[in-house]
Design a protein around this nucleic acid. Structure first.
Lengths: 339, 339
DNA sequence: TTGAAAGCGGTACCAA
DNA sequence: TTGGTACCGCTTTCAA
């Protein structure tokens, strides 16, 4: 069952390709193609189930109606939810989305961006590894439409949709302080991500504001690829002397999960011995023992805004950059010791 | 910064497009293009950062090097993990993947499949809504390469990679029986999915085998779109007289989470009053109070096999259908009352 | 109101 | 060893 092409229709109907193309693209009336011709064409197309080859169309029009989504990891719930939102909105507007995960690798990110460009995607939405200034600068220089999500480059002016990381962590730390903790630790990822840096700053600022010492061992930074492996030692070192923390803020949801796992293994009572707050959520955080207090990132808004901004930029070449730092929310549950 | 095309190179270098195309595709030696010519071409391409337009190439070769992934919901951890695996493997083999979520809607599924076909994807991996025989039959009739994952159509012969749903549930029920429960309920989704049907059968068979009655109210089926709303009544009706279940098997991970949420609200002690097992896992199931016993689906194998089978079919037109029912595993935790 | 033809950027066959 | 050229399927301009 060979695919029907414009040419086939043209030959069968003895009507030129151009007319058919026009009609099938809904510009028949505009171009004053006669009703009969139009009907004949529509009828034939329907009957033979004609569908335009998007490759050919794309080659001809110079746009592919595809947008590329480059993220660290589609199996991470946070990005998956953003992806879902992006896809939903994009698809409603006639775009398909090609996605790829970088696994936080700069090299992969470079490859992926390139391969999407080769595919002629009309625009990109990128949650960058932030180790990849070169590519971002290049995209920018080429005036290629893209918007950064979740992570942006502070010294490169681009469109971005991020969250107020600093503010979110401030709330998290304040919450622990409210529930009477002074010796508060911060478990995070190794530097490299601005978002992570901002969260650390939020922690340090808040401790400072309250004149609480950030003692040795209070701040722990894990390697993205070795979280399971390193978490036991990290937690051990934090809960026992000399650090002896009474509270921990985890800078991201999977760190919180891994950290809690270790706390449990050590029979540390949460929140009695150590209260915890997670920056970022997981779907079962309310069911966990104890339920986890967490800073909520506005996932849907990130996705929606990213698509909106990108599409605006597809239509209009030279728009001002849009930069959004969305506010976080917080759900207070038992783990922070407030009750 | 306009993109460099083959034509540009051809004009600059005074070498024909065909030669350049050959060389850049690594077939220079094979076609005995002189070393010098090859070097000139490579050098120019490098310097001017030439990248082939995949749309054009696809149009010409008739293959796009894209594979389409159609799933119910990318933000569901189960599918997200499969997607990650598929993407990883596919990308290593030179394919990009376009994905879309159907939200369990037949209409969306039809639209999405069509839009991927229009995009000229080389093949499809589909976790179908199973309300969509027509499309599957059409793909099959057209001999279009595709493989079904997670859900297949029993009366249509196709490639598929699914799990042994029946067997998984049998183990789940047996586990509850082992820990002394007789009045065991089954919370599932409204019929429509073969996988769900198989799980129900697994439950019924096992109950039957042990001569346990399946009393009124033991089997509950929720509507995919109203789980949060309907779960309270479902759980209430199950735990109190006359159903008074002592154990519940949830037919999928999110039902287990929602169900447990209600059990907790009702102050039903798990597993003392009601023991539970989940078919399918969530990342924090080990941290939940109580930790959830769950049937583990072999996510990675599903993804890997799907890609393998699909790629084989891309290379070779008429292969026999491959049909895999992968075995599940089970992680036993407190919720089933075994300890 | 409709058609012819050029062009999008490649690939691949056939000559030279 | 290299080049010419038709063609993939569609859009779009210009003429008729």
């Amino acid at each position: 069952m060979k695919k029907v092409t414009l040419n086939d229709i043209s030959e069968s109907l003895k009507i030129s390709k151009s007319t058919i193309s026009l009609v099938l693209n809904g510009r028949g009336d505009e171009k004053r193609v006669s009703k009969e011709t139009q009907e004949k064409i529509f009828k034939f197309a329907k009957e033979h189930n004609y569908k335009a080859n998007q490759l050919a169309r794309g080659l001809s029009t110079g746009k592919s109606d595809m947008i590329g989504l480059v993220i660290p990891n589609i199996s991470d719930n946070f990005y998956a939810r953003i992806a879902r939102r992006i896809e939903k909105k994009a698809s409603r507007l006639g775009y398909n989305v090609v996605f790829s995960s970088t696994g936080e690798s700069k090299i992969r990110e470079t490859e992926l961006i390139q391969s999407m460009l080769d595919r002629q995607v009309d625009g990109l939405i990128i949650a960058s590894t932030q180790k990849n200034k070169d590519d971002i600068l290049r995209l920018k220089k080429q005036n290629f439409p893209f918007v950064l999500i979740d992570r942006h480059y502070p010294d490169i002016e681009t469109n971005y949709v991020c969250v107020n990381n600093n503010g979110g962590v401030v709330r998290a730390v304040e919450q622990l302080i409210n529930s009477g903790r002074k010796r508060i630790g911060f478990v995070s990822l190794k530097p490299g991500l601005q978002a992570i840096e901002d969260r650390l700053q939020g922690y340090l600022e808040t401790m400072n504001k309250h004149s609480f010492d950030v003692k040795d061992g209070f701040v722990q930074e894990l390697d993205y690829d070795n979280i399971e492996k390193d978490m036991p030692d990290v937690i051990k070192s934090m809960v026992k002397f000399p650090a002896s923390v009474e509270g921990i803020v985890f800078s991201t949801h999977f760190l919180a999960a891994a950290g809690l796992r270790e706390l449990k293994k050590l029979n540390v009572r949460v929140p009695v011995d150590v209260a915890i707050v997670s920056f970022g959520q997981m779907s079962a955080f309310d069911l966990i023992d104890p339920p986890i207090t967490s800073v909520i990132q506005p996932v849907d808004e990130i996705g929606d805004n990213a698509v909106d901004i990108l599409l605006k930029n597809l239509e209009n070449e030279d728009l001002d950059f849009e930069q959004m730092n969305l506010e976080t929310d917080m759900i207070i549950r038992k783990s922070c010791g407030t009750f």
